[in-house]
Design a protein around this nucleic acid. Structure first.
Length: 496
RNA sequence: GGCCAUGUGGCCGAAUGGUUAGGUAUAGGUCUGCAAAACCUUUCAUGGAGGUUCGAACCCUCCCGUGGCCUCCA
C-alpha cells in the first residue's frame, strides 16, 4: 500500500507525511470568528479537515485536533475607525459581547453536527488564553522583535526578515509589500507599514478589554493561534490547516511570531483548502454574496431553488479535491443530491447482499471489487483525493445494483469478498467521508403503516384496481415517500 | 499596480506526456398495467496561436478570459 503524501503549502510540493512522533499527529486548524452566522464558505475548511482528521485516525494515528474559537474581537478597518467586530455588533443587537459570542458559538456547533463533523479534541477560545498571549508578546519584545507604541505592540517584520524567510509561505517579497501596502489608519504608529499588531490599546468605548503590561487593550488577530497551538500542541507540531485566504497575512504572521518564541517554524505541514465560489466569485462577507448555513438547510434565500441538506453539501464538497475552487449553483447541488442518494441506496443494498450458493461466483467481478476498493486507499494517500474515491465507489454502485436486477442477477461473490467490500464501504462511506443517513424519520410505527399500505395496494393491484393503487402511490409521493414496484413483485419505498 | 492561481462536455468536477474519471443532465432501449428506481447504450469538452516531442489537457512562449491574496476574511 502507498504512503500518505500531502501538499505542503510551505514548500509548494507534495511530500511524504511523517509525523514528529511516531503514531501521533498534532493538527491545528483555524476556527471560526463567532461574531456572526456561519455561511457555506465556512463549511469547506471544517468539512475538509474533518475528513483529513478521520483519515488520519483511519491510518491508526492518535490525533490531537485543535480548532480555536475566535471570540475576542479584532479590528474592522473598513472605514475610518478601528472597531471591535464583536463589541460593535453587540451594541446593535443590544447583547452582552459574551452573550453574542455564546449564541454564535452554539449555532456553529449545531451546524458542525449537522455536517456530521467530529468534534475537535480541544476547542480553545481566544478570550480564555489572554495570559498566554501576553506572555508570548513579552517574549517577542524581550527578543527585540516587537515594540510598544501608545499602549499597542507591533511585530517588527523588517528585522525578522533580515534573519528569517518572511513571506515564504504566501510567496511574498518584503520589498513588494512595502510598495503595495495601502494606507490604513493607525499606521503611523508602526515603524514600517508591513508590521502587524500583537496587542492593540483599547479606546474608551471598547467593551472587550483586558489589562496588560501595556495598558488596557485586546490581542492582535494572529497571536491567539500561535499561543494556543503552542500550549496544546507544543513548539512544533505536524499539521496546520485553514482556508487559502488565511495564508497571508494570518499564517505568515503566525510563523513569524512562533519562530521568534520557539526558534522553529510552528508546523511542518501547512494545508490549505480552496474557496467556494458563487458565480465565479469567492463567497465572503465583503462580497455580500454569502448564503448562511441556516438558509441553505431551509432553502430560504433568493438564490436557492430549494433546500439542501447538510449531507448534500458535504457530498458536494467531497466530490472535488480540497485544493480546487468549487463553484456553487443550484444545478451543481441538485446533481450532488441525486448522486448521494444513489450512492447511499446502493450502499444500503450492499449491506443486505450476501453469498448465494444457488448462484455462481463471478471471479472477474470479484477482482474488480477488490481492486476498486484497494485503489481508494491510494487515492486518499495522494493528498486526500476524495473525488477519485467517489468515482471508484460509483463504479461499484453499478455492480451492486446489477446484483439486484441486471447483468449480475445470476452471479454472486464469495462470502469473503462480500465481507471485505461491505467492511470497506462502511469504513469509507461512514468513517472516512463521514456521510450519514438523513432519512432518520424511518421509525418503526411509520414503517408499520407503510407496510400496511403496501399490502392494501398489492391487493388492489391483484384485482387490477389501478385507480386505488395509483392513488396510494401518488399521495405518498406528495408526502415525499416513493413507492417502487420491483421486478420480483416486491415493493420498496424510499424517502425523498 | 505587484505576487500567485486558473480556464476540461449543458452544469459540477477528476486526470500533469501514451484509450480525456465520476456525478448530474440529454437521447434511445430493457423491465413494468402505468410510474419510479435500476441496468444497458448513446450525444457533448481540454480558451486561442505557436513551439518541444513519435505522441500534449498536461511541458515552453505569447495572447485572451476569470479568480485569489496584497485590508477583516474559511
Amino acid at each position: 500500500m502507498s504512503s500518505l503524501k500531502v501538499h505542503n503549502s510551505y514548500t509548494r510540493e507534495k511530500e511524504l507525511f511523517t509525523p514528529i512522533t511516531l503514531g501521533y499527529v498534532g493538527m491545528y486548524v483555524c476556527g471560526p470568528t463567532v461574531s456572526g452566522e456561519s455561511h457555506l464558505g465556512h463549511a469547506r475548511p471544517f468539512i475538509t479537515f474533518d475528513f483529513i482528521y478521520r483519515y488520519l485516525m483511519h491510518l491508526n494515528y492518535k490525533v490531537r485536533y485543535v480548532r480555536n474559537i475566535t471570540d475576542a474581537g479584532h479590528f474592522e478597518e473598513e472605514g475610518r475607525e478601528a472597531e471591535d467586530k464583536i463589541s460593535k455588533k453587540a451594541v446593535i443587537e443590544k447583547l452582552e459581547p459574551m452573550e453574542l459570542v455564546q449564541k454564535y458559538t452554539n449555532l456553529f456547533h449545531w451546524a458542525m453536527h449537522q455536517f456530521n463533523n467530529l468534534d475537535p479534541s480541544i476547542e480553545p477560545t481566544a478570550t480564555g488564553h489572554i495570559v498566554e498571549q501576553i506572555n508570548m508578546i513579552n517574549t517577542i519584545i524581550k527578543d527585540g522583535y516587537a515594540y510598544e507604541v501608545n499602549g499597542s505592540v507591533y511585530f517588527d517584520v523588517k528585522k525578522y526578515a533580515e534573519k528569517y524567510p518572511y513571506g515564504k509561505l504566501s510567496g511574498r517579497v518584503l520589498d513588494d509589500l512595502l510598495e503595495t501596502t495601502r494606507d490604513l489608519d493607525n499606521q503611523d504608529e508602526k515603524h514600517n507599514k508591513q508590521d502587524f499588531a500583537l496587542w492593540k490599546a483599547a479606546p474608551p468605548e471598547h467593551i472587550m478589554r483586558w489589562t496588560s503590561p501595556w495598558g488596557e487593550g485586546f490581542p492582535g488577530w494572529h497571536i491567539e493561534c500561535s499561543a494556543m497551538s503552542k500550549k496544546y500542541l507544543g513548539d512544533q507540531f505536524d499539521i496546520h490547516g485553514g482556508g487559502m485566504d488565511l495564508q497571508f497575512p494570518h499564517h505568515e504572521s503566525e510563523i513569524a511570531q512562533s519562530t521568534i518564541c520557539n526558534h522553529k517554524i510552528p508546523a511542518r505541514y501547512w494545508l490549505h483548502n480552496n474557496m467556494i465560489t458563487i458565480n465565479g466569485k469567492k463567497m465572503g462577507k465583503s462580497y455580500n454574496n454569502v448564503i448562511k448555513l441556516t438558509e441553505l438547510f431551509s432553502g430560504s434565500h433568493p438564490l436557492l431553488m430549494q433546500a439542501y441538506s447538510p449531507m448534500t453539501i458535504r457530498f458536494f464538497i467531497l466530490q472535488t479535491h480540497y485544493r480546487s475552487t468549487l463553484d456553487f449553483s443550484n444545478e451543481a447541488l441538485q446533481a450532488a443530491e441525486k448522486g448521494l442518494k444513489r450512492l447511499w441506496e446502493a450502499y444500503q443494498l450492499l449491506l443486505k447482499l450476501d453469498f448465494d450458493p444457488a448462484k455462481e461466483i463471478d471471479e472477474k467481478i470479484e477482482e474488480q471489487f477488490y481492486s476498486y476498493c484497494r485503489e481508494m486507499d491510494d487515492f486518499m494517500n495522494d493528498d486526500f483525493n476524495t473525488a477519485k474515491v467517489l468515482a471508484n465507489m460509483f463504479s461499484l454502485v453499478n455492480y451492486i445494483n446489477s446484483f439486484k436486477s441486471g447483468a449480475l442477477e445470476n452471479a454472486t461473490l464469495s462470502a469473503e469478498c462480500f465481507a471485505f467490500v461491505k467492511n470497506h464501504f462502511k469504513s469509507y462511506v461512514e468513517n472516512i467521508l463521514g456521510l450519514k443517513d438523513e432519512s432518520g424519520q424511518e421509525q418503526d410505527k411509520l414503517k408499520g403503516v407503510l407496510d400496511l399500505l403496501v399490502d392494501i395496494r398489492k391487493d388492489a393491484r391483484s384485482k387490477k384496481d389501478y385507480a386505488t393503487s395509483d392513488k396510494i402511490r401518488k399521495q405518498l409521493e406528495q408526502l415525499g415517500i416513493l413507492m417502487k414496484d420491483e421486478k420480483d413483485g416486491k415493493v420498496s419505498y424510499s424517502f425523498e
